[in-house]
């Protein structure tokens, strides 16, 4: 679980995001939504230690800044929005997910190899294991990096726009994977611009507006507050009844 109290994020005087109180629990999927540039990615970057912060961020009760880099990486995995295209194989990339769990010589044990293979099979990149990351399509690359984050085997996963480059079928597959991870007891935090997908696939919604967290709660309660959503996003969502719908929530004015 990640708990934020009286947190300011940014560099020196420049505050990028203020959070009075926010709890990101295990076993649930939390979507962080908001307009472009409102601070969604900033929040995730601070939670993984990329950005400095004031106030208190606790990972399972321990203050984030008191943890070593490796200890933090054993508790939180992070998939950034911009992914590089290194000249390494997909298998090597996913193997890097085990970095914080290995000794100085970085030798993979049988358990490590098994975790890597399972992550690759889960994200459907096992067949691509010998391919170079830089030769992959955007969607394949996104899935390879997702496998790396899963191979990190952490109780919390922070995914910045994980569906950005995926086609429809792989977006649905990514949603199924996130649900599976949450069912295993892991906490998943995703940023998203796609409101129907966020409201349909997640348990909780956190709204960022004007560099601050304006609301956090279960999907149904947030969807019910149309004024709040219109103010933050310009639109609201409505639940649609139907058995064969991909997303039970759709956009409305």
């Amino acid at each position: 679980m990640i708990e934020l109290r009286e947190v300011t994020l940014g560099y020196g005087e420049q505050v990028l995001l203020r959070v009075d109180e926010l709890t990101l629990p295990r076993g649930r999927i939390t979507a962080v939504i908001g307009r472009n540039g409102c601070g969604k990615s900033t929040l995730l970057r601070a939670l993984v230690g990329v950005l400095p912060y004031g106030g208190s961020i606790r990972l399972d009760g321990d203050e984030l800044r008191s943890l070593s880099h490796r200890e933090r990486a054993r508790r939180v995995a992070y998939l950034p929005q911009t992914l590089s295209t290194p000249a390494m194989s997909v298998h090597t990339l996913v193997g890097h997910g085990r970095f914080a769990r290995l000794g100085p010589l970085q030798s993979l044990s049988r358990a490590d190899r098994s975790a890597i293979q399972q992550a690759m099979e889960l994200t459907d990149v096992w067949e691509l294991r010998h391919a170079l990351v830089r030769d992959l399509s955007g969607g394949e690359r996104q899935r390879a990096y997702l496998a790396m984050a899963i191979a990190q085997d952490t109780p919390m996963l922070l995914l910045d726009e994980p569906g950005a480059h995926l086609d429809v079928s792989h977006r649905l597959e990514a949603a199924r994977i996130m649900r599976q991870l949450a069912n295993e007891g892991r906490g998943v935090v995703v940023t998203s611009h796609d409101l129907p997908e966020a409201f349909s696939g997640c348990d909780d919604i956190c709204i960022v507006n004007h560099e601050t967290i304006v609301a956090q709660g279960a999907v149904d309660s947030i969807a019910a507050d149309e004024t709040l959503l219109r103010d933050a996003m310009g639109v609201c969502v409505r639940r649609v009844e139907g058995e064969d719908l991909v997303h039970p929530y759709s956009l409305s004015y």
Binding site: R45, V48, G49, V50, H69, R70, R72, A73, R74, V76, A77, Y78, L79, P80, T82, L83, S84, P86, A87, M88, T92, L93, H96, G97, F99, A100, L102, P104, L105, Q106, Y145, M148, A149, Q152
Partner: peptide, 23 residues
């Protein structure tokens, strides 16, 4: 030789490397 595994992570970009546990 001891630095090599960490240096390989830098090819993924600083943010990803930090997320993987590299100072």
């Amino acid at each position: 030789l001891l630095l090599a595994p960490g240096l390989d992570l830098l090819a993924l970009g600083d943010e990803t490397a930090i997320g993987l546990g590299l100072d």
